[in-house]
Design a protein around this nucleic acid. Structure first.
Lengths: 192, 192, 192, 192
DNA sequence: TATGAATGAGCGTTCATTCAT
DNA sequence: CATGAATGAACGCTCATTCAT
């Protein structure tokens, strides 16, 4: 693993453990096993880490979604699998998800965000477009608009559950997933 | 206005202007016209401001919703008015909304948040319960679950627009609102 | 008890508990049950408390000595009783003893200290003068000089034991007392 | 001189000049010619300086004693030289001596103090042991116990003189030394 | 006398950033 | 490429002191 990758991996790890604000560059380089100065060979500042982290997280999310959703399932099953995947990623990385989602990572790298996020929007958008063509859903809004609504709804539902670290909430999570799926199915106009 | 209120008001103002992370306590007290030490008579730290701010923001949000939604309108009109209200509040306070919504305001005051948020969830929940009883919507999920989905979907849609300060996005906002409303109507099962 | 006395008593108590440097005026007034401003009606600053405290401590010390030393005992018994008394006061108030003894209470009230300390020096000095006149001790140095050496030796011996809060040191203390007494007896030239 | 040594040397200098409590870290770093942050690379707080300072002071004291005491002198001459040495060190560093001796330098580093002080106790103890073996003194208490009494008596006598910065006290000091020496000689049982 | 909310200078401390090696 | 000791501006916070009531 290159030093650059080590930095990003360590940052994700420590952000997850102790929160973004309380993490110092010193923490990151210690965990990565490199020198203080080395950080600046790759990133000009702490904030400039964010796009790289987002990229990794988006890849992780997309990979989890792709791994979870079986292409040959019925559309509503795929939707259920998608919800499962998003909840799962949120459970594991809720601190970072919140950080990325809320855009708190400063206003300076916004341009990059759009491109970083593109893959996951595109994947969903593609699925929706196919489903519309195949007549599987009645909602005829543009696929990319629907993609944003779907991801927004699902992630906010997941956050409402996992923002609070308390344990034994599996049943709450299961119910929340059911309600979310139902709302998605109806919102998209999937015949039941 | 008491000193405590002055602090909260000033904090909201400055967080809105320059972001939460970049705001110092010094900024807040200067704007509030009080001494540095006075801050600590009312709040032990910057983070402990958050529940008080959230409370004000929730009040503002609920008030805006109540002022915007005409009780005698048809349900789908009220839903449109609700979406308008949420977008409006987000437009004005997107930085703070993001902060509150994402829960990034530290994990130490989470218990308080539930109670702080209660009023707005309850209002929506009440509207939904009525609509279900009157047969205006087909989605028979519990009202409080639907309330959370509705606010989550609408706020995330608004954030996607307003997180980026750029101007001249009114048309994008208008479209986003339309898509959101449509999704909500279908998701709730409002006959069209 | 007057407010002034309450302040002094509270200060002694809290200095003993948490150390002089870490004690704030706020701590003192809270414990005394009076208002912040009231403190300044009686003492212009924290440092000006010191002579009043010293006075109380000197009184306490002298009283303990007088209560412990039986006037009709043989001289060496009285010396042993004196050592016991000094060790006892040190055990209970070692933090304050150290503070007073080392004169760390600032250089601004030094003049007052001499007068504050006078009673205890005088008492010892009187005892020594009598003993010299009665031929009980051979050391013919001036009584007031001997008084200072005696108190200096005994208190430093006690401090060496009680500065360290550890428990179960009674046997160490007993030995230290024996050696101290022996040294005093020889130093004063008490026939054995 | 390393930065760490520079910090310790500067601290000793400034503590001597303006007292411990009134000395700020800012004073120290300015005098040492280093940056504010550099201090914290070596010491986590102002209090943690104390053991390092004590170590230097103990070295200085022991060195002064060794330089002053002529090994071939008669025992009572060596005792006189010892008293001279202790008074001299106290005259020059009374503020720091008081601080170290009274142990006010916080209760957190007490363990270290015992080891820091060891060299000077050992030196005296060694001298006493020899003198006892050679029959030069009659007091047969354990050498280490006597060592502590001797240093305690002599330093407290010195402090009583030098705690007060006033000038023209040479005659008082000379008298105090004489009385102290006499007391020591008798206390140890040195034949006269 | 007595109060206690308010003050603000100044403290200890942090940490992103630099640069000689 | 890599280092890590050094920097110093800037921060949160404390607390002795004041004063209108």
């Amino acid at each position: 693993m290159s030093k650059k990758e080590a930095i990003v991996q360590s940052a994700i790890r420590i952000f997850t453990e102790k929160g973004v604000e309380k993490t110092t560059i010193s923490d990151i380089v210690k965990h990565a096993g490199i020198a203080q100065g080395t950080f600046y060979l790759y990133f000009p500042s702490k904030l400039s880490l964010m796009p790289a982290i987002a990229e990794v997280m988006v890849k992780t999310t997309l990979q989890t979604v792709i791994d979870t959703v079986k292409p040959k399932s019925a559309f509503q099953d795929r939707l259920r699998q998608f919800v499962d995947a998003i909840f799962e990623v949120n459970r594991e990385y809720h601190e970072i998800q919140a950080m990325i989602y809320s855009g708190l990572a400063s206003t300076e790298h916004l341009k990059e965000w759009e491109t970083v996020y593109a893959p996951i929007y595109e994947w969903i958008s593609g699925q929706i477009a196919h489903a519309q063509k195949d007549g599987l859903i009645r909602n005829d809004s543009p696929p990319d608009a629907l993609a944003k609504l779907i991801i927004g709804l699902t992630e906010s539902a997941a956050e409402q559950i996992y923002l609070y670290d308390e344990i034994g909430q599996d049943s709450r999570a299961a119910k929340q997933k059911e309600e979310t799926l139902k709302f998605l199915l109806m919102g998209l106009g999937v015949p039941s």
